[in-house]
C-alpha cells in the first residue's frame, strides 16, 4: 500500500519534470495529464472516492483545454531555456525551501495518523459521529460540503461564476474586435 503510494508519487514527479522540460508543447500537456491522473489514483488509495471521481473528470476537461492551446502550433518548439543567473536563483530558492521542509518534516503528523486524532477540538470527529444523524446524508463529504460548510460552497460557486465570466469576457467578440491589437484601448475602460 505505502509502496504503491510512493511509486505513484514518483510517477507524478517524473511526469511533472517531463512536462516542464520537454520541448514540444503537446507532449508537455500530455505529461501534465499524467500528473492529474496519477493524483486521481492516489486519491483512490487514500480512501477518497469523491475526490478520485472529481479529479479524473476535471483532468479530462483540463486536458481538452490545454490541448486546445497547443493544437494550432503544429509541433513548434518552446525555444531555448532562460539565461543562467535566473535558473540558479530559482534553484537556490527551491533548495532553501527543500532544506527548511526537511527540518519541518519531523514535526508533521506521521503518515497514516490523521490530524483530527491529535487535536480534540478538530471538527472532523463531530462531523463523523453526528453527520448522519444531523444531516441524514450517508456521504459525509457531501454532508460537510452542502450542510455544515455550505458557505464555502457558496463562495466556490461565486468563484466559478466569476472565472467563467472572465473567460467569456476575454474571448467575446466585442473585446476581440474592438481592441484587436490594442493595449491602449483596454486601458481606457
Amino acid at each position: 500500500m505505502t509502496v504503491l503510494l510512493l511509486s505513484l508519487l514518483l510517477f507524478m514527479i517524473i511526469a511533472a519534470v517531463i512536462a516542464l522540460y520537454t520541448e514540444e508543447l503537446i507532449s508537455a500537456v500530455i505529461a501534465a495529464g499524467a500528473v492529474g491522473f496519477g493524483s486521481s489514483a492516489v486519491f483512490l488509495l487514500l480512501r477518497a472516492p469523491d475526490l478520485a471521481i472529481t479529479q479524473i473528470v476535471v483532468e479530462v476537461i483540463a486536458l481538452v483545454l490545454l490541448i486546445r492551446t497547443t493544437l494550432h502550433l503544429s509541433g513548434r518548439g518552446v525555444g531555448e531555456g532562460p539565461s543562467g543567473p535566473r535558473v540558479r536563483a530559482a534553484g537556490l530558492f527551491c533548495l532553501a525551501v527543500l532544506v527548511s521542509v526537511l527540518f519541518a518534516l519531523p514535526r508533521l503528523p506521521r503518515f497514516g495518523e490523521p490530524v483530527m486524532d491529535r487535536i480534540a477540538a478538530a471538527p472532523s470527529g463531530f462531523y463523523l459521529e453526528r453527520g448522519l444523524e444531523l444531516t441524514g446524508s450517508a456521504n459525509l463529504v457531501t454532508a460537510i460540503l452542502l450542510d455544515f460548510r455550505a458557505y464555502d460552497t457558496l463562495g466556490e460557486a461565486t468563484i466559478i461564476f466569476t472565472a467563467v465570466l472572465g473567460a467569456l469576457t476575454l474571448l467575446s467578440r466585442k473585446c476581440l474586435t474592438s481592441c484587436p491589437a490594442g493595449r491602449e484601448e483596454e486601458g481606457e475602460r
Binding site: 469523491d50 479529479q55 490523521p114 472532523s124 463529504v141 460540503l145 466556490e156
Partner: peptide
C-alpha cells in the same frame, strides 16, 4: 478517514478547473 480535508479539496479541484 477524515472527511473534512476531502470536502475542502473537492472545492479546490473544481476551482482549479475554472
Amino acid at each position: 478517514v477524515d472527511p473534512f480535508p476531502q470536502a475542502m479539496v473537492l472545492t479546490s479541484i473544481v476551482i482549479g478547473l475554472s
